[in-house]
């Protein structure tokens, strides 16, 4: 599903070049559950942003389902994000003025789904994360774990093929974090979507079927079953 060929991301800070990604070659199959670990600053978030089409590589190619998306224009990339990709962030990024229900409806609103269907599917998605009774609550009326579950409902309501989660438990205590991971894993299984999870927690990272480690903008050789 995902194929990166020699992907680089170089930031220019002042006169200096910071190589956040230094030549990444990577293949991820459809339906895989991949964890991405590594020290701070190793390039995990940068890689995830490129996978999610929020950022463009400065060199290399990115093929998504066989389609070279590196050179697509902004509108085409936006369409792919809308239809094929779901994000879960460390800081939830719920819109504070909108209810949980409206937050979950947001991707469908942007995609032009009719209101009635929007409401129905958002309610279903909220029920799937166990928050049916919190639909009318605004984010500031929810706990951290509940907020992240709303964010997961939002990320999965469009049934994306690819779910990208950047330290989704980084702001949660152990119990809430475990709940969130369990939820992500369940939806990944039920929907058959590909899940890429960035985490600092080795215990969580170990749950993935495939574990990637990064250092200095590069992916370290994989242990275990030896797929590259």
């Amino acid at each position: 599903m995902i194929r990166l060929e020699g992907v680089e991301r170089v930031y220019r800070v002042g006169g200096e070049a910071v190589r956040a990604l230094a030549g990444i070659d990577l293949e991820i199959g459809t339906g895989e559950y991949v964890s991405l670990m590594g020290p701070s600053g190793s390039g995990k978030s940068t890689l995830l942003h490129i996978l999610g089409l929020l950022d463009r590589p400065t060199a290399g190619r990115y093929l998504l389902d066989g389609l070279d998306v590196t050179g697509l224009d902004e509108n085409a990339q936006a369409r792919l994000r809308r239809e094929a990709i779901g994000f879960v962030f460390q800081f939830f990024h719920l819109v504070p003025r909108l209810t949980a229900q409206a937050n979950v409806e947001l991707p469908m609103l942007l995609a032009g789904v009719p209101p009635a269907e929007r409401r129905r599917r958002a309610a279903e998605a909220l029920a799937a994360v166990g928050l049916a009774d919190r639909a009318r609550h605004r984010p500031d009326q929810l706990s951290g774990g509940q907020r992240q579950r709303v964010a997961i409902a939002r990320a999965t309501v469009m049934r994306p093929r690819l779910i990208l989660a950047d330290e989704p438990t980084g702001n949660l205590d152990h119990a809430a974090g475990a709940e969130v991971i369990a939820l992500l894993e369940r939806l990944h299984r039920e929907h058959g979507s590909t899940l890429v999870l960035v985490t600092h927690d080795p215990e969580l990272g170990a749950r993935a079927t495939r574990r990637l480690r990064m250092r200095d903008g590069q992916i370290l050789p994989e242990e275990g079953d030896g797929r590259a």
Binding site: G52, L54, N75, R81, R82, H93, V95
Partner: peptide, 16 residues
């Protein structure tokens, strides 16, 4: 800013 970033991540094109 965060909301705009989110809308983009959810697939809102710049024109929208």
């Amino acid at each position: 800013r965060a909301e705009i970033g989110l809308l983009k991540a959810l697939g809102a094109p710049p024109g929208l």
